[in-house]
Design a binder for these strands. Structure first.
Lengths: 337, 337
DNA sequence: ACCGTTTCCGGTATCGTTTCCGGAAAAATA
DNA sequence: TATTTTTCCGGAAACGATACCGGAAACGGT
């Protein structure tokens, strides 16, 4: 597959390389007719500017890198789609890498992407604190980076966050208002900032409504359905059951539901349930799961726009965007009389 | 962020550019000590070869493109991970594009990727037949392409397929052997080859076991949970219920389960259920869903290896790999006495 | 008729590599 | 010692584009 080059077009028309280049870059310094002629014959010859050469001569790759912890679940997939939408419109390619929730792979991914000369990076770290120093070093070195999701609010960098505190608070308060008084929170992993924030929101709701300490528990779990099943097994075994459970995410909630069902414990009659980071399955479960929806597309879009700005203005001040969600009440958390 | 170039390293050591290049490319024509010296000082100076320049001079991008219908569901996500694993090891970047199940976007994606000079493509078409002529033209033009999943077996190109006929047959036969005699198949969309193949497998099982035609139905549906719900609603409304349902995929099955539950129809006591293209949720559903697991990682890996071969051997004969799956029987399809 | 602008275009350097070619030095052979 | 072979290295030409510079027309105003 021999590619037609700018030279071939120039030779064909007996014009200079420069003219062909100018015709394609839509600049001044070229007569309308020649430009059209050039574009027409180029089209006929099947010529298009070689992006690699363009990248080299302009010292830009028009690539940006995205590093996410995983994209098996819809959450990051949707974020990626949001990012792609924005950057494709700007003529950029988006390189995606997934870290498999492993900070070492994450660091390797970032290094690979930087070595492959991306013009900028969007990173959703697996956990904060592990690789942050390295990323901030690169950032200060002039490599544009935008962070998403799992980073602290006081991080000196541009970032897009979800207001976990607030929405965990709302979700918890909803349970309280339904009349549940013994509420457990399955809190994910304490290594995650989002976890800490949601715990904070949970506690705040408890305090506001003056629920005594002995009436609630915060239990560390993982992020997976299996983790939800595991902890429910323990609780059932210990006869330590609340009347409502707030889960770190929908996957954990699914694990909980499954375990409860197999023990003939009814949701929400015996135990109410609330998820988080809504998935598309909430309506397919029985009972339908109440949950907090995160604006995944918007997280992606905002991160992309932020990065684009940063690429084109190296002096830009770090900017933080905090997005809100949506609490949808479904069957799993509604008190049945 | 000024990059160190090969020239800087050469000047520093008073050697030629060529020598530095040779040191990095591990070729002959260079003394061991000089090579080591060069590599050492390059390391110290923070030099690494500019990939863009390398691409230009070698006329290779070391990028491959992957086009999938979507990656919201685990199926293609897992395939992509398989592809990435292989190609990252070979030092390639993987560019991912998703077509949103839309043939026009798909064509646009492919064109964009070809224009961005990928060394090869892996395509999982949204439906066959729409854009195939274009892809085959590019293939014959010398652009290495491997197809996945939704293409016909007689397509003149390298491809990785799942044996839909066989596994649909097994799944159906299992239902028959459980003693179900009135079995409906919710068949996905007839525009999809996989659909046609699975129908074939379904029919074959019916014929083998001499189930009379009036005892089974093949109903066209979509690919989504909503489609499953819709069709169940119709069937329930028309009092046209079988004693077992085989679903095109797990999502449709989830829709079916959900609709059945809300109508107090029990699975599997009243109606048994079988899914396909197993998702990670099968064990979280009640009842646990029987399904056929596709070897997603292997599909990805095989496609990648096939493409890699094709890239490095332009004369390679088109090769077809047909993979097998795994039928796991769970609660939803086991006859309760 | 002269000159200054504008408009358009070609030549050339540059981006950072790889690769080919040829030559010098070192080693092997006669 | 003379000659051949091998080993190693530098120079220069690609790769395909863009950016800058300056020159040649064309044009209009005095």
């Amino acid at each position: 597959m021999k590619h037609v080059t700018i030279k071939d077009v120039a030779k064909q028309l007996n014009v200079s390389i420069s003219s062909v280049s100018r015709a394609f870059n839509d600049k001044y310094d070229i007569k309308k007719e020649t430009k059209e002629l050039i574009l027409k014959t180029a089209e006929e010859m099947g010529y298009f500017p070689n992006p690699i050469a363009k990248k080299l001569s302009q010292n830009k790759t028009f690539n940006i890198g995205v590093v996410v912890p995983e994209f098996i679940n819809e959450y990051y997939s949707e974020i990626i789609i949001g990012i792609q939408e924005v950057f494709m419109a700007y003529g950029y390619q988006v390189l995606i890498a997934q870290s498999d929730e492993n900070p070492e792979i994450e660091l390797k991914n970032v290094k690979t992407l930087i070595h492959s000369m991306v013009d900028g990076l969007i990173i959703a770290p697996t956990m904060e604190s592990t690789n942050m120093e390295y990323y901030l070093k690169e950032l200060n070195n002039g490599c544009p980076i935008v962070f998403m999701s799992r980073v602290k609010e006081n991080l000196q960098a541009s970032k897009v966050l979800f207001n976990n505190k607030k929405w965990a608070f709302f979700a918890t308060e909803h349970l309280i208002r339904q009349g549940y008084t013994k509420i457990y929170y399955l809190a994910g992993s304490k290594n995650l900032n989002v976890s800490v924030d949601r715990i904070e929101g949970f506690k705040r709701a408890m305090n506001k409504h003056k629920i005594p300490k002995e009436n609630y528990k915060i239990l560390e779990t993982g992020l997976l359905a299996e983790d939800g099943m595991q902890i429910m097994e323990d609780l059932i075994y210990n006869h330590d059951l609340p009347d409502a459970i707030f889960c770190f995410n929908d996957r954990v909630a699914m694990g909980v539901i499954s375990k409860l069902k197999s023990n003939a414990i009814k949701v929400p009659q015996d135990i109410a349930l609330m998820g988080f980071t809504e998935t598309r399955m909430v309506n397919l479960m029985t009972p339908k799961l109440s949950s907090v929806k995160q604006p995944t597309f918007d997280i992606g879009k905002n991160a992309a726009e932020l990065l684009f700005k940063q690429i084109n203005d190296s002096l830009m001040e770090p900017q933080t965007i905090v997005l809100n969600g949506e609490l949808t009440i479904r069957e799993s958390s509604v008190r049945k009389l």
